[in-house]
Design a protein around this nucleic acid. Structure first.
Lengths: 354, 354
DNA sequence: CTGAAAGCGCTAACAG
DNA sequence: CTGTTAGCGCTTTCAG
């Protein structure tokens, strides 16, 4: 009777053929009803529909994908969903993917640069029609080459590699790049601080070799040059993009006796840690030290005092990435976007006295 | 020459057959090499492997899935990735899914209860081997029935419905449920507040009909009964789980002239809004009003003053959900878990003077 | 250890 | 409008 006798008690899922039999039509007709993209007599369709319902029929997406219909999934690869920074981009991606009728696969690398390769490979297997990678890139040739290879491989397969917040791989590499004006934001923020009269501004949290970091530091430096303020190199301190580094780093700074009137944290998380350290040390913000962050994550309005920071259009980055990737044929010229950033002034730098 | 002449310039991806030809073996042998689960002569395997590399071969996951090999994806459905609450659960899910060799599909309902149905249906099509839904459920019969139906349908197909932070659907419904002690957490927190001497504690943000909310309110009420403190019903105020409601609601409370010495916010986000409103009104926390939240999201340590709140084991919820669902045959008894919660005391309730 | 052949569930020509 | 016939790329008996 049964095709197979599984150990499990799973009723075999019904197929187009079952539906066809029940509705007294051919499998092809059922398929046409499913697709909806082909004329089918009104009552035939009705019968088929009813049969589907009675059998609790559900198409098999894999079979669909296999027999030619374009795949409908977008892959999204991040370091860590937990960071508000990524979470908001993820929301944009998910939103746009849904709007374009795509499913969204979420993968996490936990900041292991190797893992991104494995994952991209897996996505090739899945035949995802866009693979979106977000986060700073490392200045590493091997890394760069590997990504370039993936870009080409995905392209050959009709898919697309998308980089969010990373520098382009190169001129003729088939990849979509959606950046935000990292350098410009840092420039604007530093200018804001310098114009308020601060002469010794700490940059807290440089990560050598990380593209995001280099760009921010570059904006920081350029602002000093532009405004003709000397920059003491010891004011740029290395450290991770984390709350705990913000805390530790600031404490270290405080005990080291370095003088500074303002602190520009590499990210809002770093700033949050810094604020705590300053508060514990009895340093008033912004009276004694002005503090600024970068990213404008929701946290920024809840810390005390509320944080002046650089706004990044998170959700738009995500949405743009998906849109561009899926419609690359319509917008071949637009495959490299640079979205704007702007500073948001809050209490942590307000009326800063020198 | 070519099988098809596509308009696109995509080189057709190579298949097992191509690899087989190149290695001078049959497709079956290539498949065996891929699966690794079957003896293949050492040098044959080597040749196949080389051919795969040379052709840049990538298996087609859909074809694999279609021809019987169990599917390898887990679906995760949330209201909104953006909430830190969900983000951390997502991390747990992703982590465990990766550990179990599964891919993770992320879907968002934007709090539209209808959308969850569409998505679950889509996941049936994808043949996901577990479908995880997180977030409070509505006390709605239609909703309940629909979920029950999905639970059964998924079960029939060898998949599994998992509910995180939602009450079970019923005794014999095949679904995995991972809850956290919502009522207990609220009870503990309320007791903490009452034992500190507060007699008029506001509960800010009840959402009638939402399971999460009902449980918290129930813990709140029970603590009053247990400690023999009268509860003025007007102290329970309805409102959404959002920062903005926390802000507005608190302002309204303040202008209404209702007296209260402590405020228990339905969630940390609500508490964050409340803190802002109190600060703006010149009400000192915790001296004038003690404030507590619920969820223990990272934000809680960054608001000022740092927030006393109820800790939920976010990541563990996610991990447990995946583990239980995938190994349901090994742990049939454990398909309903209740994870513990505990209060974390921080500055917002410290040394509260009556 | 390896090959040949059948088929997973669906869609896409090609004929009616 | 609808049925028939081929596969999509892979795994899996069943024979060597």
């Amino acid at each position: 009777m049964h095709k197979k006798a599984r150990g499990q008690a799973h009723a075999e899922a019904s197929t187009v053929r079952d539906v066809a039999a029940r509705a007294g039509v051919s499998a092809a007709t059922v398929s046409r009803v499913i697709g909806g993209t082909y004329p089918v007599a009104k009552d035939t369709r009705a019968r088929v529909l009813r049969a589907m319902r009675e059998l609790d029929y559900v198409v098999n997406a894999h079979a669909q994908a296999l027999s030619g219909s374009p795949n409908k999934t977008v892959a999204f690869i991040v370091d860590d969903v937990t960071g508000p920074f990524y979470a908001h981009i993820a929301r944009g991606v998910e939103q746009q993917a849904a709007a374009e009728g795509r499913l969204c696969m979420l993968c996490t690398t936990h900041a292991d640069p190797q893992r991104v390769f494995t994952i991209v490979e897996t996505m090739r297997e899945q035949r995802a029609d866009a693979v979106i990678v977000v986060g700073g890139a490392w200045d590493d040739k091997a890394y760069h080459d590997r990504m370039t290879y993936f870009a080409q491989a995905l392209d050959r397969a009709g898919s697309r590699l998308v980089l969010i917040g990373r520098p382009p791989l190169g001129k003729d590499i088939p990849a979509t790049v959606v950046e935000y004006d990292n350098e410009g934001g840092a420039f604007a923020m530093t200018s804001h601080l310098l114009s308020a009269g601060h002469r010794r501004v700490v940059y807290l949290g440089r990560v050598p070799g990380l593209s995001t970091s280099s760009q921010r530091v570059s904006g920081f430096t350029r602002a000093h040059e532009t405004l003709g303020v000397d920059l003491d190199p010891s004011l740029i301190v290395d450290g991770q993009f984390s709350r705990s580094f913000g805390y530790q780093g600031t404490r270290a700074l405080l005990t080291s006796g370095v003088k500074f009137g303002a602190l520009f944290a590499a990210t809002d998380m770093v700033a949050a840690g810094a604020l705590q350290a300053l508060r514990e040390a009895g340093v008033r913000v912004p009276e004694d030290v002005a503090v600024a962050g970068y990213d404008d994550i929701p946290l920024a309005i809840d810390v005390y005092p509320s944080l002046t920071t650089v706004n990044i259009p998170h959700e738009e980055l995500g949405r743009t990435a998906v849109r561009l990737a899926l419609h690359r044929d319509e917008f071949p010229e637009a495959q490299h976007q640079l979205l704007g950033t702007h500073i948001v002034v809050r209490d942590s730098t307000r009326r800063s006295g020198r």
